[in-house]
Design a protein around this nucleic acid. Structure first.
Lengths: 129, 129
DNA sequence: TTTGATGCAAATCATTTGCATGGGT
DNA sequence: ACCCATGCAAATGATTTGCATCAAA
């Protein structure tokens, strides 16, 4: 029971190659476009399934922006800065105040196990225009 | 030009009445269900349109959880604690460290104008079970 | 009367799923 | 040979939109 029978398929490999060094936080659709250059017959469903697999394996993080998922190979705890002008997402390394994350904050009886901080504003590229 | 011709309709009033004192962060669908008790013929589209209107007016805040919007009549700056067990959302008043929100943090040239912090964990009700 | 708001249905967008077939092991 | 993974298409869920009609002003 419970053995994790993982098959090494070409499509899983190609999906991973398409995101593993990516810092632009691509969506499933964007990854699909790239991956089709190598595997023209790959289906969008397979891309979704493999991305999901990579997330479960802990090789990828997902976060939702608006209604769309974005994938990030940076799995260390970090936050995101989202430019309200160009919609680009930047990784930010900030650890919110310990106090915020302690169990006492919301109310007694509540336990905080994780947190997510998003920063919104204007990025350098957009400010310079 | 540009005059804001707002009509006071029964459906807008009923939608507002259904959320104005709500602390449970209902979805459009949940609001639709409540509102139909007063106005059985109201359409889901109208509920969406009116919620949107209230958000634009600043009488309501929206935030997305998973793929679904939740509405909150608490418009003061605050954060949310989401119970990973029962999915309930609680309002939390925590101001993240000033340093985090300063413009210098992400990188030079970046300006932070707003932020959003979500806390995940187990709520009191679930912990006591 | 004017024209914004509504109800209804169809459209959209992102993602998931059922199923027959193909390919790792 | 097994049986997981794939491709394809249809299904799903949340939200939006087009349009004829209705009702505030």
């Amino acid at each position: 029971m419970g053995r994790d029978s993982r098959r090494r398929t070409k499509q899983l490999e190609v999906v991973w190659d398409a995101v593993k060094d990516e810092t632009s936080h691509p969506t499933a659709d964007q990854i699909y476009d790239r991956v089709r250059k190598d595997l023209p017959n790959i289906s969008l469903g397979t891309v979704y399934r493999n991305l999901q697999k990579l997330v479960v394996e802990g090789k990828l993080q997902v976060f939702t922006l608006g209604r769309t998922q974005h994938f990030d190979p940076l799995i260390e705890q970090h936050q995101h800065f989202i430019c309200q002008n160009c919609e680009r997402v930047y990784d930010v390394f900030v650890v919110p105040d310990e106090g915020i994350l302690s169990s006492s904050l919301p109310r007694e009886g509540f336990t905080v196990t994780s947190h997510q901080l998003a920063l919104y504003g204007n990025c350098k590229a957009c400010s310079e225009k």
